[in-house]
């Protein structure tokens, strides 16, 4: 038995979505994690809670509000229309936005933990060795936080591959555009095509298991000793 053309397209779309989401999340989560680690602002607690919301909210709630916000009547959607842009719901771009929000805590937390583990000392040392703040960030913070970045990227990627609720609410089920793996599995089950559902589901189980296995190996391999 082999994959149908529609299923292959769903798999490729899923991988593309996960890759783009992960790349964007690295760009967004790094400064956010840095700020959360180093700020003394009162806003910190509120922002931490906000970033963590996707961990506890049902994805349908998240998807619903994104749909409302990004739709033609929503604040963001209205504004985008005024700028002459098309609205995001039921497009691939909309899925990317939804996935980024949905996986944000999975990217921010490992990076923030890694930044916190570095502490302030190596950065102070770098400052006394004439490194400017940007220089310290690039030459000390980023390399020392590398395990955190790896964990964040792997988790964000895997979590995006497995998302369903947000996609369904926000993206619908348009082949080649928004029909990702989890939606395809749902469709197969609805149509009682259990063999196809099995093939995709088992693949996803194997993929997720391998990802977690590698992550465990990697974090075990990296043991930081205080110098």
């Amino acid at each position: 038995m082999s994959l149908t053309e529609a299923d292959t397209s769903a798999i490729l779309l899923t991988l593309k979505l996960a890759a783009i989401t992960t790349a964007l999340l690295m760009l967004i989560a790094t400064p956010l994690a840095w700020w959360l680690t180093h700020t003394h602002a009162r806003l910190r607690a509120a922002v931490t809670a906000l970033v963590s919301l996707p961990l506890v909210l049902p994805p349908t709630v998240l998807g619903f509000y994104l749909l409302v916000l990004l739709g033609p009547q929503g604040a963001v959607g209205h504004w985008m229309q005024q700028l002459g842009l098309s609205t995001l719901p039921f497009t691939f771009a909309g899925l990317v936005v939804g996935s980024v929000v949905f996986s944000l805590p999975f990217a921010v937390q490992p990076i923030a933990n890694a930044f916190a583990a570095i502490g302030t000392r190596p950065l102070e040392v770098a400052a006394t060795l004439r490194a400017s703040p940007w220089d310290r960030f690039a030459s000390v913070a980023i390399p020392l936080a590398r395990p955190g970045f790896t964990t964040a990227a792997v988790l964000a990627f895997a979590h995006t591959v497995g998302e369903f609720g947000v996609v369904l609410m926000l993206g619908g089920n348009i082949p080649g555009q928004t029909r990702v793996l989890s939606v395809a599995i749902y469709d197969h089950v609805e149509a009682l095509e259990y063999a196809d559902a099995h093939l995709l589901s088992a693949g996803l189980v194997a993929f997720s298991f391998l990802v977690l296995l590698m992550l465990g190996r990697y974090s075990g391999h990296w043991q930081r000793t205080p110098i």
Partner: peptide, 14 residues
Amino acid sequence: ALGYVFQEASLFPH
């Protein structure tokens, strides 16, 4: 233009 030696050597481990 200063040099600072901390109590722990604090070498960059990477």
